[in-house]
Simulated assay, not measured.
Amino acid sequence: MRFDTKIAVVVRADLAVWQRLNVTSYLASGVAHARDETIGDPYEDGSGNRYLAMFRQPVLVFEADAAGLARAHARALGRGLATAVYTDELFATDHDAANRAAVRAVEAEKLSLAGLGLYGPRNAVDRVTKGLSLHG
């Protein structure tokens, strides 16, 4: 099935593996709240056990250096895409309010980005991630 929208996560390539996984999970949780249509229906197994609903479409995970991440961030903001952001400062915070305060303290073009979560029209997300490699 081809979706009109796309979900993408862009993670900085020089992060430790645990950091890349942590950033990806946080950003995906942000994208999940972008629009109601991002999430499908709950799951149920043959024994009647219920499971949480998940994204209704694939999530593409890209990697970039700091410059590529900054470029993608500027493109996403310029296109008005639903964007989740994770900065280096968030590795040192220990709760949600501190996370928001850390991001709020820095102007957009000066953010030290560890990753971005993106949701929007397929072609707009493709333009933002153009030139980036899928995480490998």
Rank of each mutant, 00 (worst) to 15 (best):
A32V: 03
G117N: 08
A28F: 06
N49K: 15
G78S: 03
S29H: 06
A97W: 07
F91Q: 13
G40F: 14
G80Y: 06
G68W: 12
L134F: 11
L77R: 14
V31F: 07
G68A: 09
D4G: 11
A98K: 15
V128C: 03
D41A: 14
A98N: 14
V23E: 01
L27H: 05
V11K: 08
A28D: 07
I7Q: 07
D36I: 01
E63K: 06
G115P: 08
V31K: 11
L81P: 12
F62P: 01
A34Q: 02
R50H: 14
A34S: 04
G30A: 06
D96H: 13
G46A: 14
F3C: 14
S133W: 05
V31I: 12
R2Y: 12
D88K: 13
E44P: 09
V106H: 04
Y51Q: 02
R56G: 10
L77A: 13
R56Q: 09
V11P: 07
A67W: 10
G120S: 08
A13L: 09
R127G: 04
R56V: 01
V17N: 01
E107N: 07
R71S: 06
I39A: 09
G136M: 04
A16R: 05
N49E: 03
R104F: 00
R127A: 06
A28G: 11
Q19I: 00
D96T: 10
L21T: 02
A64E: 05
L77T: 03
L90I: 09
P121Y: 01
L15C: 09
V11S: 05
A28L: 11
D65S: 12
V31D: 04
G78Q: 08
N49F: 07
H73Y: 15
L132S: 02
F3T: 06
L132R: 06
S47Q: 15
W18A: 03
V128F: 03
F62D: 00
K130Y: 05
R122M: 01
Y26H: 10
M54H: 15
A66R: 14
V9F: 09
N99F: 09
A53F: 11
A101H: 10
M1I: 05
G115H: 10
V125A: 06
T38Q: 13
V9K: 11
D94H: 15
A32L: 08
A97V: 06
F3N: 15
V85P: 09
A114R: 13
P58E: 00
G46T: 07
P121I: 00
L118Y: 03
V17C: 00
V59A: 00
E89C: 02
A124L: 04
L27A: 08
N123M: 07
V61D: 15
S133R: 12
A114T: 15
D14F: 02
G120A: 06
T87S: 13
A13I: 03
R2T: 08
V59P: 07
F62V: 01
K6E: 03
H135T: 00
W18Q: 04
A102G: 09
